[in-house]
Each structure stands twice: as structure tokens, then as C-alpha cells.
Design a protein around this nucleic acid. Sequence first.
DNA 1: TTTGAGTGAATATGTGTTCATTCATTGGAT
DNA 2: ATCCAATGAATGAACACATATTCACTCAAA
Lengths: 220, 220
Amino acid sequence: MSAKRQLAVVPRRRTAPPEERREQLIQATIRCVADRGLADTTIATVAQEAGLSQGIVNLHFRSKTGLLTATLRYLADEYRNACQEAAAAARVSPVEGLRAMVELDFRRTICSRDKLAVWFAFWGERRFRPTYRRICAERDRSYDDMVRVICARLCEEGGYTEVEPALVADGLSALTDGLWLDLLVRPDSMSRERARRITLSYLADVFPRHFSQPEADARH
Amino acid sequence: MSAKRQLAVVPRRRTAPPEERREQLIQATIRCVADRGLADTTIATVAQEAGLSQGIVNLHFRSKTGLLTATLRYLADEYRNACQEAAAAARVSPVEGLRAMVELDFRRTICSRDKLAVWFAFWGERRFRPTYRRICAERDRSYDDMVRVICARLCEEGGYTEVEPALVADGLSALTDGLWLDLLVRPDSMSRERARRITLSYLADVFPRHFSQPEADARH
DNA sequence: TTTGAGTGAATATGTGTTCATTCATTGGAT
DNA sequence: ATCCAATGAATGAACACATATTCACTCAAA
């Protein structure tokens, strides 16, 4: 599985710009963690996966911890950037905002199996590493704040006086995390498309006048 | 935090029945993983936490892996046994069955912070260890099968023709997992009581004629 | 006295980090 | 244009350290 990764055409320059090498190593780390687990990911395996030598990791990142932290931050930033799109959609309307969030959360580029594996590997450790905790907390905040505000707006504008926005926001957030977990550990019984349906079905139950039952309007 | 654990009254017999020692070591493992993480849990730390010597682990379990596996199985069995109660409640009515599941999932003995930490530590690794995967899969099945059956019955008996039972079951399962995650990593913004409310609120949205809005009937 | 649960020092292994060395690349001198 | 330092990216063997496992030994209990 860890086949040659260097491009066949370009004979692989011995020296590359630091940014490029860092990215290359982060990608290798993601693949490594995804198919060996965090416990069996060593500097040696990452270097091999990247087609480079051992020392390179300590050269570009100060330590193994540095590499792992950078990998986590890479994923967190990617997610937060994607959130910006949803924020833009939310300026159109709360409903569009929520739809955008659901679309984003189960987009292939965001929740590929590789990336999910890495997320959960880090989540298992985040309690014990202040750095991991900070990065994850920032990511969570981007999501929570946005969903909370959108839900509050929809409740108000849509006249859902009996709905508690904070409760729905927390529920939506938890549901998404749980579906991510399912996508990772039971890929045969859960697909990104099914996860979307479940989430939209949840929104349809909470906001019946704004989300139609997904099983009625989409047959994938 | 890792203070003396041997009971002060009983002067700690040098030899104890094997079953007792195994349990003692499993409990020590749970505490260890819960407050150091799986990565920093060593045979030495577990032994120290248990107030015993290093060699004891390899004596009672064949290896470190054996100890970890036994710990995971211990938690899985505990959960499955608790599920039996819910199964009994379900014989009264589907609604009681679901209520029992929710009560159980957020009961202190099932989702204490220590145990949640251990669950997620293992979940991060389950993809890569066939043994972990098997144990977790068994546990998942107990839950999924039960919830699926109960939802199907409630849909039929309660006349919810437009609700897809499988979708609700998967949603409920994912929501629970997500809330567990919240309980673990954000204990200040999520409590077991709040998690229950969110879950019951979800059920109230799906089955409005059988679950009243929890914010209306409980003020904790 | 015998037994075997329990011990903990010693061992073996795996892995993160360091650093002397190699060599592709660059830019200035001829 | 060609050659020649100078630079620093990249290497990988050596090192240091952590830790799982082993085993000869101890000693409470029968």
C-alpha cells in the first residue's frame, strides 16, 4: 500500500521549498495514521510513506510531537475554512446556512475515511495534550458558534417559539460527530449520503416548516 | 492522584483469588487510561495504580495487550448487561424501552468520565486491532438491534407511517455517541442531564404523540 | 516442607533524536 | 558560457531512552 509517492515524471529534486516538504510530510502522516493508527505511527513509517529519510521530520518540524500537532492543525484549519462557505450561505438565509453546514460536514474532502481516522485518533488523546485540546477547541467553537447563531435566527424568524436553539445546536453537533464515528467504524452500513439524510431528517423534525422530509425529495 | 489504593483496613493479603486480582488490575487500568491516556499507560503505571508489582500483569494476563483487551471486554459486557434491563422495559411497551435506553446511556455508572475516556481511547484504535473491533462490534450490535426493533414496533403500533425506523435508529445511536463525546471533552458545557434532555427532545420530535417535550415536563 | 502467588532487577526491543556527512543547487568569478 | 566555492536540504547510522517481557528468587499459606 505504501507505494512510491514521488511523481514519476519529475525525477524528484533533492531539495524542495520547505513549505512543500512540510505539506508532503503532513499528507504522509495522515495516510500513516489512517492505516496504522496513532500508536503504530513512527517517524520511520511517516518518512518511508513520504519517500524521504528519517531525519527529515526533525529537520522540518522540531519533533514528532511537532509533526503531529501540525497535522492536527492542518485538518482543523481546513475544516474552519470550509465553515466560511457555510457562513456565507447563512447570510442568504438561516435555512441555507444549515443546509450548507450539512453539505460540508459530509463532503468527501472533509470526511474521507483517512481524515476521519486521524480526527478520532487525536480525539482519543486530546484530553491529555493541552496543545491538541486547544486546536480541537478552536475548531469546535467555529462550528458551535455558527450553528447556535443560525438556529437562534431560524427559531425567531420562523416562529418556532417552543424550540430551544441551544438544545438543537448541541444536538446537531453531537449527531454529526456520531455519524462521523459511524462512517469511520462501520463504512458498510453508513455512507456519507445516508448520514446527510439522517441529519436532514433531524432538521425536518425540528423545523418542519422549513425542511421537507429528505426521503420525499431525493432518491439517491 | 494515584494515591494508595489498597484498602487500609484489610492489611492486604499477599495472595488473593485470581479473579479478584484480575478485577483489581482492570479497575486500575481504567483509572490509568482515564487520567493519562492510552499512549501513556504502561504496565508500570497500571501496577503502581493497583499497588502491585510490575510482573503481576504478565502473570494474570498474558501480556499488556491481554490486559487492555480484558479491560475493553469488561466495559463492553457491563454495557450489554445494562442493555438487558432496557430489553425488559421494552417488553412493557416500545416507549418504555426507548426511555430505558436513554436512561441507561446517560447513567453515571455507564458513562462516568473515566469510562468514557477509556471507550474513546479504544475507539481511536479499533480499526487497527481485530480484537478490539470484534468486541466493539458485538457491543454495537446489542444496541443497534434493540433500538432498531423497538423503533420499528413504535412506528407500526403508533401509526408513524412516514417515519423510517432504520433512519431513526441510526440517528439515535449516532446522537448518543456524539453526546458521549461531548460529555468527555466538554464537561463544562455538557452534563448527563442535558444529554438526556437533548435525546428525549429528539425522540419527541420524531414521535410527537408518544414523547412530550422534555423541557415542559422536567425542570432539573 | 511444599506450593505457587507475587516480586523486581535484568533483558530485549522499539523508537525518538542527534549529528557528522553527502550532495544538489545557486550565484559569483573567470 | 564555464567553473568553483558556499549553502543548506537531506541522509542514515549511532545514541539515548522508554518500556514490555522474562525469570530467578521470596515468602505467605496450607
